[in-house]
Design a binder for these strands. Structure first.
Length: 604
RNA sequence: GCCAUCUUAGCUCAGUCGGUAGAGCGCGUGACUUGUAAUCUCGAGGUCCCCGGUUCGAUUCCGGGAGAUGGCUCCA
């Protein structure tokens, strides 16, 4: 018996007439656009099964910007097949079929989907009495709904098939690989177009593209994929960033450590990395009969320093930071520009303190992090509080206290937050901060994690006022996350137009004619003497071309100099943001730029 | 790793229905000496990703491999 027949065998109603019921059935309420997306997914499944009869269907949910549906095709389909599917979908939509719902028993559902192995598996996981089918235009799908009333509610010009991708059934690598078709889908054409525009904007800002255009960094597959080469201009950015980072850390009561890149295997056996994390570690190298590993984390090294002396409660808290370069093996398919790499530098720190100190310490870390994001120009920040998972180490009382101190800190700072129930690591609860970039994308950057595991495994102790040896609290934190990934996010956030203090080249002097090269050189010398990164463009290109090049490089200040400026000791300042140019004395310009740099101003 | 797509000059990309290839930018050269987003000239630069097969002949067609890119959490 086919699904359609089962569907027709019983009473059905249109979704419109049971308003609310579908939503009631769904575990989560659906927004109108999600309903449209999910309905469009059904239409796509119908189109696909009409074009390729016998194709097995799996699942087709709404996602952030559209929907997808997973299929198992008898023979592979290609990108070129997408237009035909889209065309068929439009035909179905124009047909104006109604979405109808019917509730069936488990047995009926089994009969209906006898030929659909994935549906059968899903049915087995459902409760009898809570199973519903939806039908439109003769196509029946197992679905809890809700759906739009009529296919016409899906705008034919507000969706667009995107791509074909492989996806494992239920995300499990051991299960069959299905063919997933992704689509963008919105409730109006304008929304779709706005989204496509955003994607275009994102592509312009892509860190790989700008990394090349602005000569910031490169990767070399032949020398090892996922490893970053910082060019001189990327290097300037990084040196300035790290200089600031170090100053801020000292100012906030941290000490800075330097630890080795490799260490003997017992460190990683003790830390547990070789147990849980081996697949992400580089293979060992044999040195004098011992196995050494490149470090995937800095913690065991910091702990070695902690244990180099007997620590008193009087020594705590210890705030130890390191720009520690670590190596982690990532599968080749997941590498991505600066965002996902195999070697990177964490802006890591460990805070070791007594239970009494923990609340203040957490608040301090959070404050410190927020102040850094503010300086860098990120305003929209959200916290995610991850609580104890099913399997965990450490005493429950410690978990409770730790979680409470995290929550208090978030509330005290007035941050919006979500609780990720059971989302913590087995070794402790954590706060993650996500920052929103200039085009509205969220990036997870800061992480503040308790660790009840390491202190135990490495037997860390301090002597308390009562003479007892006690276990300190340990917190890992990374504010920027990794320098590489932060650089990538920052490139995309700013489009390469970094604030003046971080700009590899801060000013380019452009003489209107080579007659004024000497004055241009003098201006450069004056600027350089004050530590401003300046260069004169003395090439034989035309002035307009020089401006275009400097603008393309996002140079904050383009100083045009000619007869007038030479006579008066001034510079004609052109700003990269397109504001009106202004002529000022060299001294005034110097003062302005030095102030911007000193203040780490986001303005020019 | 798996699925799909891609790989041609330093970069971005054309192109060859099978006869070893082009543009723009960049680079070098010569001329021009310029007032706020591209001056003109000439030139150098390519194992058309790699290995096999078919063919008189393969960058192009077929097979295999490598790498890159988009995906592989969203639950019927």
């Amino acid at each position: 018996m086919r699904a359609e027949d089962v569907f027709r065998a019983g009473p059905f109603v249109s979704d419109a007439s049971i308003a609310g019921k579908g939503a009631l059935m769904a575990s989560q309420p659906q927004s109108p656009v999600e309903t449209i997306r999910h309905s469009a997914a059904h239409v796509m499944a119908e189109a696909v099964t009409r074009i390729w009869p016998g194709t097995k269907v799996a699942i087709g949910p709404a996602i952030d910007d559209g929907f997808y549906y997973d299929f198992q095709f008898a023979s592979p389909i290609k990108d070129d097949d997408l237009p035909a599917i889209e065309k068929e979908m439009r035909r179905i939509i124009q047909g104006g079929a109604e979405f109808k719902r019917r509730e069936v028993s488990k047995a009926e559902a089994r009969t209906a989907f006898a030929a659909e192995p994935f549906k059968l598996e899903l049915i087995e996981g459902l409760e009898d009495g809570s199973i519903s089918l939806y039908e439109q235009d003769g196509f029946v799908d197992l679905c809890r709904g809700p759906h739009v009333a009529n296919t016409r509610e899906i705008r034919p010009d507000a969706f667009k098939l995107r791509s074909i991708a492989g996806a494992y059934w239920r995300g499990d690598e051991k299960r069959p690989m299905l063919t997933r078709i992704y689509a963008y889908c919105f409730s109006s054409k304008a929304d779709l177009e706005a989204h496509l525009k955003l994607l275009e904007e994102a592509e312009k800002r892509d860190n790989r593209r700008l990394g090349k255009e602005l000569d910031l960094f490169s990767t070399h597959e032949e020398a090892g994929p996922g490893l970053i080469y910082w060019h001189p201009k990327g290097g300037r950015f990084r040196v300035e960033l790290e200089k600031w980072w170090r100053e801020e850390h000292y100012a906030n009561g941290y000490e800075i450590l330097f630890t080795p890149h490799i260490g003997k295997s017992w460190l990683w056996e003790t830390s547990g990395h070789l147990g849980f994390y081996k697949g992400n570690m580089y293979s060992p190298m044999k040195i004098d009969e011992d196995d050494y590993y490149a470090k995937p984390m800095n913690c065991p090294f910091h702990i070695m320093i902690y244990k180099s002396d007997t620590r008193s409660y009087r020594d705590l808290p210890l705030r130890w930071a390191e720009l520690g370069t670590v190596y982690r093996y990532e599968r080749s398919g997941v590498l991505h520009g600066l965002m996902r790499v195999r070697g990177f530098t964490q802006d890591d720190a460990h805070i070791i303190c007594t239970p009494e100190q923990i609340e203040d310490e957490i608040l301090e870390v959070l404050r410190f992090s927020l102040s850094m994001w503010k300086t860098l120009g990120f305003k929209d920040i959200k916290a995610y509080l991850a609580t104890k998972p099913a399997e965990s180490v450490g005493e429950p009382s410690r978990w409770d206290q730790a979680l409470e101190s995290l929550r208090k800190a978030i509330v005290k700072e007035g941050l919006p937050y979500e609780v990720d129930e059971g989302g913590g690591a087995f070794y402790g609860p954590k706060i993650d901060l996500k920052v929103k970039d200039a085009i509205g994308r969220e990036w997870q950057m800061t992480t503040i994690q308790f660790d009840f595991n390491m202190s135990e495994r490495f037997q860390m102790e301090y002597v308390d006022a009562d003479g007892q040896h006690k276990r300190p609290y340990m917190v890992h934190r990374a504010l920027l996350g990794s320098i590489e990934r932060f650089f990538g996010v920052y490139i995309e956030h700013t489009g390469g137009a970094f604030p003046v203090w971080l700009m590899p080249e801060q000013a380019v002097i452009i003489p209107v004619a080579s007659t004024f090269d000497d004055y241009a050189k003098k201006v450069v010398a004056d600027l350089k003497r004050q530590g401003i990164r300046a260069r004169a463009d003395l090439s034989d290109a035309r002035m307009n071309a020089k401006i275009r090049t400097a603008q393309g490089q996002k140079t904050p200040y383009m100083l045009v100099v000619g007869q007038k400026e030479q006579d008066e000791g001034t510079v004609a300042v052109r700003f990269r943001d397109g504001r009106d140019q202004s002529t000022m004395s060299l001294a005034d310009f110097l003062a302005r730029v030095l102030a911007r740099i000193a203040e780490k101003s986001l303005d020019l």
